[in-house]
Design a protein around this nucleic acid. Structure first.
Length: 476
DNA sequence: TGAAATGTTGGGGCG
DNA sequence: ACGCCCCAACATTTC
């Protein structure tokens, strides 16, 4: 009997387009699928919303693997030690995994690979969940791209060369059963209190991911370019958490879109716009790969001296959706309730924290990390630095979103605001994004008491804008 | 993947 | 009829 191969699952909780799993399944011996819950080395621990998702995603993966014949082994602890022990227990001669690209994971995995190899165990890593790995797309002079558009021009043509790995249909189980933690023991699902009631719309796991993609392609892709900025409608793919956990890979998405295009003749504006968003994900990964300290410090060094304010009350108002700006508050409450926020609104609330409140983007980044089901180091860090103006290809600092205009433009009837800020549900559309401008009689007729049932704006937009521009002048 | 300030233009009211 | 002014509407520039 050939020795078993361990497949170490990380951010690739899927059976399709899983190179490591496919390679292991193609060998003679049994396959031991393993997931390690490692809260120590290997980057920051997942936030609360991510833990909620991980719980369901692992259960789904375990079911799928059972169906293929090889049960998922769950273990907790330092990855190096867990792997060493499992290899000894099982007599495995190979450990396969799909690569991660953040600094902490790279350091850990490199060491593990060397240790395993030194112990006579073959350690192999495979291309994971990107269209192009971070080091593959370079400018003519060999440096990484810092601006998205030229990056995408170069990356876009390369993605056509790679197709997804075949779906794994059958696995040979390890003859001897291996100990596995009961997943309940990891307490990933919140209790006392269980605040996850609003997460019920999600279906973590590979099946849920494929269904989400199918629904999106079938009904929303065509209009994506126009609808994706409308938080009052469901124009986005909602694939972000599935992508983060690797329940579906970008390559699968490209593949499905391409076959869709072949059927209809030509690429549509919708599919190109959507691909571009997947391209942003790759772009962010390669930014963080080439500048790993951007997790903690601004990519543009002049922002190191930025005069951020300290204001716990303002931060709390932002976090809890009580800034008095309806579109901001709606977004923050959608996030808190569902673990997700529409991308357009993410830009608005982020701009508000950084520019209107002059609070350090890292405070917002940490909050998103804890509350988003799709919290992803590269996307989160790059996104916040983009908004703050300190990142690569960033929005210029003087570009200050006006939350009233943004609301009127992208949520014209206030449908989104009414949904998430029920205190304002009866406000006339004219004033839904600026209730403080409504005549007293109008407010009274709707039962709104500013400062009582809904807050007054915690900052004045014009003043905040001037203050932000002045702060920028100080570091310029 | 903005907004606000400033500049320009052209139609219409009006003396 | 003519010029002046007002002010949308749009364009450009500045932050």
């Amino acid at each position: 009997m050939s020795p078993p191969t361990v497949v170490w699952f990380r951010k690739d909780l899927r059976l399709a387009d899983n190179e490591a799993l496919f390679a292991a399944a193609s060998r003679d011996g049994p396959v031991i699928p393993l997931y390690i819950f490692d809260e120590g080395v290997g980057g920051r621990p997942p936030g609360a919303a991510s833990r909620w998702w991980l719980d369901k995603s692992l259960r789904s993966l375990a079911e799928d693997l059972n169906r293929l014949g090889a049960p998922l082994v769950l273990r907790r602890g330092g990855a190096a030690e867990v792997l060493k022990r499992l290899v000894a227990e099982s007599g495995a001669k190979a450990v396969y995994w799909n690569r991660l690209y953040d600094q902490a994971s790279i350091v850990r995995d490199t060491r593990i690979k060397a240790d395993l190899n030194a112990g006579g165990v073959e350690a192999l890593s495979f291309a994971g969940g990107m269209l192009n790995e971070p080091w593959t797309v370079k400018t003519g002079s060999g440096t990484p791209y810092r601006v998205f558009t030229p990056y995408w021009r170069a990356a876009r043509v390369r993605i056509d060369m790679c197709g997804p790995a075949p779906v794994v249909k059958k696995l040979r189980a390890n003859p001897a059963p291996l100990a596995s933690d009961p997943i309940d023991a990891w307490a990933l699902h919140p209790r006392a209190p269980d605040w996850s009631g609003g997460f019920a719309g999600w279906r973590p796991g590979e099946t849920g991911a494929l269904d989400a993609l199918k629904t999106f392609l079938g009904s929303r892709l065509n209009a994506y370019q126009d609808e994706r900025n409308r938080p009052d409608r469901s124009g986005t793919s909602r694939l972000s958490p599935h992508l983060h956990f690797g329940e579906i890979s970008p390559r699968q998405i490209v593949d499905v879109i391409r076959r869709d295009e072949e059927r209809s003749g030509a690429p549509t504006a919708g599919s190109e716009a959507f691909l571009r968003e997947i391209g942003w994900r790759d772009f962010n990964y390669q930014l963080l790969f080439h500048a790993s300290d951007m997790e903690h410090s601004p990519l543009n060094p002049i922002f190191g001296g930025f005069p951020w304010r300290q204001d716990r009350r303002a931060l709390a108002a932002w976090q809890s959706g009580r800034t008095g700006y309806p579109i901001v508050d709606a977004g923050m409450r959608e996030l808190w309730t569902t673990g997700w926020m529409h991308n357009r609104v993410r830009m608005i609330v982020a701009s508000f924290l950084v520019k209107h409140l002059l609070l350090d983007w890292q405070l917002g980044e940490r909050w998103f990390w804890d509350t988003l089901v799709d919290a992803d180091l590269a996307n989160n860090v790059a996104g916040w630095q983009w908004v703050a103006g300190s990142g690569a290809d960033a929005a210029p600092y003087f570009r200050v979103f006006n939350p009233v205009l943004q609301g009127e433009k992208f949520d014209p009837d206030g449908v989104y605001v009414r949904r998430w800020v029920p205190e304002l549900a009866t406000a006339p559309s004219r004033f839904i994004h600026q209730p403080w401008r409504a005549p007293t009689a109008v407010l009274a007729a709707c039962g709104i008491r500013l400062g009582v049932s809904y807050p007054e704006p915690i900052v004045d937009h014009a003043e905040a804008r001037t203050r932000a521009l002045a702060a920028y002048e100080r570091i310029r």
